[in-house]
């Protein structure tokens, strides 16, 4: 059985990710311990709330360094929702009127900016167009997943990217062979979400 660590840095409702991954048959530990997070077969970085708060929580448990070390050792990481956004260079949430925004973990190039849509947050089930050769969305092209967010990465970052449209097109999931991420919540997306998590766990 694969071992999965969920990084605990004070972001809410880690249990739902734990339950979903346990349900598909993996051993899951919620942890802020660097050794556990480094050595698990897979590391999940969840996240709800604001980019800046999540980023400071991640830095508080040395999460950026943990992710960098895992990437260097080719050990897989899965970011979910804000846990995806912080993988990019910069988050512009709550930076209106300021310059710069908040630095992310910069594993991938790209900026996280507000969606242009009449109703925000983008909340609910939306279809995802799977990127060519996506392992995460293998067999799941066109399925609906549950989203809750107002910010997203819109420009391509040269990864394997799946896309969704809400007001405008944005990256719904991304992967580079080691690091994977979803803007939506697979742990809250019913059977298709469980299948995506299974795809990820089986790839470890």
């Amino acid at each position: 059985m694969k071992s999965i660590a969920i990084l605990d840095y004070g972001s809410g409702n880690l249990r739902s990710a734990q339950r979903a991954i346990e349900h598909i048959g993996a051993a899951v530990e919620i942890t802020s311990d660097a050794d556990v997070a480094l050595n698990a077969d897979g590391l999940v970085v969840p996240g709800v709330g604001a980019f800046k708060a999540c980023m400071s929580g991640i830095l508080g448990v040395d999460g950026k360094a943990i992710m960098s070390k895992r990437v260097a050792a080719k050990r897989p990481v899965l970011g979910i929702c804000i846990g995806m956004q912080v993988l990019f260079t910069k988050g512009l949430e709550h930076s209106e009127g300021e310059s710069g925004g908040t630095d992310g973990c910069a594993i991938w190039p790209g900026e996280v900016s507000q969606l242009s849509a009449p109703v925000l947050p983008h909340m609910g089930w939306n279809n995802v167009k799977a990127g060519a050769n996506s392992k995460l969305l293998a067999g799941l092209d066109g399925e609906s997943f549950y989203f809750v967010h107002s910010y997203a990465v819109k420009q391509s970052s040269g990864l394997i990217e799946s896309r969704t449209t809400y007001g405008e097109s944005f990256i719904a999931s991304a992967e580079d062979g080691i690091v994977s991420a979803t803007q939506f919540h697979p742990e809250k997306s019913g059977d298709v979400g469980l299948q995506l998590l299974k795809n990820w766990v089986q790839s470890l």
Partner: peptide
């Protein structure tokens, strides 16, 4: 691709 109306 469209956001679905939710039934709750």
């Amino acid at each position: 691709m469209t956001l679905s109306i939710r039934i709750i």
